[in-house]
């Protein structure tokens, strides 16, 4: 990770401006990022911004929320209102943000540890409520920020600093989990599928309800180094070779699917959205929508 700490003032770091069409959305004075070279987060950010552009939502209306971990650092680099919260709790902050101002488009960036371990309870309850948040979960199967510990999605047998003999734990399938809890849009892609990913992100953003997009991503620094995947390229290659589309996966047996990454869109359905229900209740009881930005007037 690079040093973010000597960047106290707005600078003019614009090296990649011409090369990256999405650089206009960045807080340029915060670049470079802290992410390791080869980290999948770069692909995740670009795919997100591409998906966001194609959704035709208003960038000025976008609020980003995150918890703690590498992926949770993303909002700090995007030039919109951003709330970098405590570990695991991004969804609860996002819930308050969205309910108190349903006009905002709220996107939550999280990781496997943040969303599925410490924040697992908030994840299932946000999905249950079908609150209109778009969750982008960058799953690298390891704790990167703290230096390579085992996570709730680490495959059995994989090595981590806290699984020196190989993980003996059973990993979560986040797609199954969130779908079962009631999410109305669920997708999964890897960093080897940027185009499909950005399309699913667009679909998630446009879904009026709880959307969950898992990005299986590489952490070359910790996961790769510990698990004999020496380079970012070898990790992306592994994703490409091992992923299998949902439509094909539906025809295969569990045995044939073992160690495969099933990608695609898993849930896309309609169900009444939660902040709308609160609006409706307010309308019924007070004759008005819920009040916006009232702290400045009452």
């Amino acid at each position: 990770m690079m040093d973010e700490n000597n960047k106290n003032t707005k600078s003019s770091f614009i090296t990649h401006e011409e090369k990256n069409p999405y650089i206009k959305y960045f807080r340029k004075d915060r670049l470079p990022t802290i992410f390791c070279s080869g980290c999948g987060i770069g692909i995740a950010i670009n795919s997100f911004l591409k998906g966001f552009e194609s959704s035709e939502l208003d960038f000025n209306n976008l609020s980003l929320v995150s918890g703690i971990g590498c992926s949770s650092r993303i909002p700090g680099y995007i030039n919109c209102d951003s709330l970098h919260t405590s570990h695991g709790r991004a969804l609860s902050f996002g819930t308050g943000l969205k309910i108190a101002n349903p006009d905002l488009d709220v996107v939550v960036f999280t990781g496997d540890g943040d969303a599925a371990a410490i924040g697992g309870n908030h994840l299932i309850h946000a999905a249950r409520r079908n609150i209109n948040l778009t969750v982008i979960c960058i799953n690298n199967n390891i704790y990167g920020m703290t230096g390579g510990q085992v996570s709730p999605t680490s495959p059995e047998g994989s090595l981590a600093t806290t699984a020196p003999y190989g993980s003996i734990d059973t990993p979560f399938d986040l797609v199954d989990l969130v779908a079962a809890a009631g999410a109305t849009f669920v997708g999964r892609w890897t960093t080897a599928h940027p185009l499909q990913l950005s399309k699913s992100i667009k679909n998630g953003l446009l879904n009026d309800g709880f959307s969950f997009i898992e990005i299986v991503s590489q952490c070359p620094t910790y996961y790769g180094r510990k698990n004999n995947l020496k380079t970012p390229v070898s990790m992306i290659k592994m994703f490409k070779e091992n992923s299998i589309n949902k439509r094909r996966a539906d025809t295969l047996s569990d045995e044939e699917l073992s160690a495969k990454i099933i990608v695609g869109e898993f849930v896309d359905k309609k169900r009444e959205e939660f902040s709308e229900k609160i609006e409706n209740l307010s309308y019924r009881e007070s004759g008005k929508d819920t009040i916006r930005k009232s702290a400045y007037v009452v």
Binding site: V65, F93, G96, K98, A100
Partner: peptide, 15 residues
Amino acid sequence: SAIGSVIGASWSGVK
């Protein structure tokens, strides 16, 4: 999550 939601709501501009 209760206090998390309260912090979020406060940043939306609501007491």
